[in-house]
Computed example of a mutant assay.
Amino acid sequence: MPVSNLDVVERIARVIAGRVLSANAEGEDCSASAEVDATWRDYRDDAIAILKTLREPDPAMAQAGDLATWQRMIEAALSEAGADAS
């Protein structure tokens, strides 16, 4: 499995920024990459909120894998982001 060089909070924040800015999603910019690069940090709190929500997997996710490993992975991402884990 490939491993990203970017932390998950940045990756999620960039996706949110892209959806807001890009004409390919909900935005108006036909070439939004520079704007995403400049503004993704504005979406960090949203990304952290998403990760906090993912701490509790749904039934299909729980059936697919090890819950303790999942929780450790999400907590590691939150810790790396400097987010309060509560």
Rank of each mutant, 00 (worst) to 15 (best):
A83L: 00
A47R: 01
D45H: 05
S4E: 14
R11V: 11
L78P: 02
S79K: 07
N5T: 13
L67S: 10
C30N: 05
I50D: 02
G82A: 00
A47L: 03
I74T: 11
R11C: 10
E80N: 09
E80L: 06
D37W: 04
S33R: 06
D29K: 07
S4I: 10
I74K: 01
A62Q: 13
Q63R: 15
Y43C: 13
V3C: 10
P59G: 12
Q63D: 15
D84S: 03
D7P: 13
L21G: 04
V15Y: 01
A85S: 00
P2I: 12
A64K: 07
T53V: 14
L6A: 15
R55Q: 15
A64S: 14
A85H: 00
V15D: 13
A85Q: 01
S31L: 08
R44C: 11
A60T: 15
S31E: 10
S79D: 10
L21P: 04
E56H: 13
M1Y: 11
D29I: 08
D66M: 07
D84Q: 00
E80I: 02
R72C: 09
R19F: 08
V20Q: 07
A23N: 12
E80W: 01
A47N: 04
A13M: 09
T39A: 08
V3R: 13
S4C: 11
I12S: 08
A23S: 13
E56C: 14
G27V: 04
R44W: 01
E28P: 00
D66K: 06
L54S: 12
T69Q: 10
I74Q: 03
P2W: 10
D58K: 06
E35M: 09
A64Y: 05
A17W: 02
A81N: 01
S31M: 01
Q71H: 08
I74S: 06
V9L: 08
R19V: 12
A13G: 07
A49I: 04
P57A: 07
A64N: 06
A47W: 03
I74V: 15
V9E: 05
G27F: 05
A23Q: 14
T39N: 11
A77T: 07
L54R: 09
W70P: 02
T53C: 11
R41A: 13
E80C: 00
I48R: 02
E35K: 12
R55A: 10
R41M: 11
E75D: 15
R55D: 04
T53G: 15
T69E: 14
V3D: 11
A60Q: 15
A32P: 14
D42K: 10
R11Y: 04
G18F: 01
V20H: 09
A85P: 00
S79Y: 00
D84L: 00
A23V: 10
A47D: 03
R41K: 15
A76T: 10
S86T: 00
